[in-house]
């Protein structure tokens, strides 16, 4: 399959700092690609460059066959975008928002009504077509934005943290729409998220940290890199237990958020031994199968949520940063 996104040594500097540092990767046509990393790792900056919202400082990126720097209009015509922050016109109705979008994205006039109806169906908002956006809940707005992003049948759909700040029910729904979409079309989806569990259904996942792409592979391959299952335990004296465990079992113990964790094959059987050996010191113990969170932990030495900060990528801060960057 041919690449629909190819990125070569893409770099973005903001006042001397490398927000994105020489990253290179390819996304194949029809692929569901997850771009994960903690807040501030460079995900949004990368997506902004791929969507032609900001110019790369160095390197090149090609999306849907067009160069993001020199053919931005062509790139824009072929991509759909769903941002972290709403970009709906809250004083127009849902239908008017989609109509506006279909015109500025050059959807042929005779196809507009049918396509608008279709995407309304997809996100189950047909009953709210004529409601003004200011009456919509946050979840409804995000669903409508997904619908709008699909309206002009883009070849690549970019979703920048699409479920941030949404209730679990709406998150579920958005994933259902995307699953349905993927079963019906060959659309490429480029997702950024800092919820690693959301990246599980991706075909491939790229992990970015401090502006550098650390690894890129299928979720299963990534998890097998972590190798074994993980035993995690809370104890009465972490410092002492860490040493005891390391000397006794010849393992490397990490201290994460007040919990000790180490890898072990066949952890469920090994658990019994740990309990027998250290019972007086244990307050709780458990086994976890590797998840993408563990992959991140293994590769960076810390948990992805450690870096959690309140979402600060509001429209105005992006606008001012972007303005300054150009």
């Amino acid at each position: 399959m041919k690449s629909i996104i190819s990125v070569d040594k893409l770099t973005k500097k903001f006042s001397g700092l490398n927000a994105v540092d020489e990253i290179s990767f390819d996304v194949k046509e029809g692929e569901f690609f997850g771009f994960v990393g903690p807040n501030g790792a460079g995900k949004t900056t990368t997506i902004n460059m791929l969507c032609t919202l900001i110019r790369p400082t160095a390197g090149t990126a090609n999306v849907a066959g067009y160069d993001v720097a020199s053919q931005s209009s062509k790139v824009r015509e072929n991509i759909g975008l769903v941002f972290q922050d709403t970009t709906l016109d809250d004083r127009l109705t849902a239908w008017e928002n989609l109509e506006f979008h279909s015109v500025v994205y050059h959807v042929p006039a005779r196809e507009r009504k049918q396509r608008i109806d279709h995407v309304f169906d997809l996100v189950e908002l047909s009953n709210h077509k004529n409601d003004v956006i200011s009456t919509f809940s946050g979840g409804m707005k995000r669903r409508l934005e997904v619908a709008r992003g699909l309206l002009h049948s883009p070849r690549v759909l970019f979703l920048d943290e699409p479920t941030i700040g949404l209730d679990p029910q709406t998150r579920r729904r958005i994933w259902d729409y995307l699953a349905r979409l993927r079963s019906e079309t060959n659309m490429t989806i480029f997702l950024t998220t800092h919820y690693l569990d959301e990246a599980e259904p991706c075909d491939r996942v790229g992990i970015i940290d401090h502006g550098k792409l650390i690894v890129i592979d299928t979720p299963n391959a990534l998890k097998s890199r972590v190798g074994a299952d993980v035993i995690h335990l809370s104890t009465t004296d972490d410092e002492k237990m860490k040493n005891l465990l390391e000397t006794k079992y010849d393992v490397t113990v990490k201290d994460v958020k007040g919990e000790l964790a180490f890898e072990k094959e066949n952890a469920e059987e090994f658990l019994i031994r740990v309990v027998e050996d250290f019972k007086p010191y244990l307050t709780s113990i458990g086994v976890r199968r590797p998840t993408l969170d563990d992959v991140f932990l293994k590769l960076t030495g810390r948990e992805i949520r450690d870096e959690d900060v309140p979402p600060k990528h509001s429209m105005s801060s992006i606008a001012s940063r972007v303005k300054g960057g150009r």
Binding site: L81, T86, T87, L88, D89, D90, H101, V104, Y105, A319
Partner: peptide
């Protein structure tokens, strides 16, 4: 207003001059 509430972005990224 449109910049503050995000809609300007929809306008600026549209594939139109």
């Amino acid at each position: 207003w449109e910049r503050e509430f995000g809609f300007l972005r929809e306008l600026l990224i549209a594939p139109i001059p």
